[in-house]
Amino acid sequence: MNIVKPASVADAVSAAKAVAGSGGDVAYLAGGHTLIPAMKARLRDPEQLVDLAALDDLRGIIEADGRLWMGAMTRHRDVAEQAGRIPALTEMALLIGDPQVRNRGTLGGALANNDPAADYPAAALALEAVIETDRASHAAADFFQGMFFTALEDGELIRRVGFRIPKRAAYAKFRHPASRYALSGVFVAELDEGIWRVAVTGCGQEGVFRWPEAEEALATGTDIASVTPPAASLMSSDIHASAEYRAHLCTVMLAQAAQGLQ
């Protein structure tokens, strides 16, 4: 296994292309807090790692055009400390992993991996994020394509992500007590007056999804306690939680998020 540390996005992409073009397995290394555990578990065995640590223009947070734009290498800690323009995002970032994980893990890494229990996909879907890469601009609605799958092509590198600044939003998460990943995570956002988005992570067999019944209830002012839970047949089920339990947790997290809107 080799590792290179390119000095520019263009160099990073061509380093990845060189290996992928000859049929080799190549992986971008951001914070490494998903990739390295996956490698230790022998789920990934790339022959080439492309370390993005030197790409300083992939860091930082700015506000423009009604969006909060964050560089792909922005760490969870930085989001927690600097994304105050969207309080729900800072709140969400503080629920990821633990302080040591937040010192390393990155926004871009989390989105590119699209773990079905990760938090950022819910925020990206609810806040209609735009995911800009070295070659394209993806709407979040088209970006997440099932568990661990995204619209990214081989070697495509996320540069930055723009989250719509909502009128108000909140995230509620039921955490697995050891891994801190979501058993159910519900991100609620009012984008414009009466326009609501509700995105759910941690539950779906195909990863993050929108919950139209919950959006409808928030838009019409219906009692959210009466919202139909997501179908149990769409829920994942494992030793930690059954499909029925996860579906129920969604309604509990929805109520918590709706109470915590800011």
């Binding site: 590792i3 490494g32 807090h33 390295i36 302080p99 040591q100 010192n103 390393r104």
Partner: peptide
């Protein structure tokens, strides 16, 4: 690592350069 706590089981030597 540069004054911040990190988990050294999840960092490659190259990242500590």
């Amino acid at each position: 690592m540069n004054g911040e706590p990190v988990k050294s089981c999840t960092i490659l030597l190259a990242q500590a350069e």
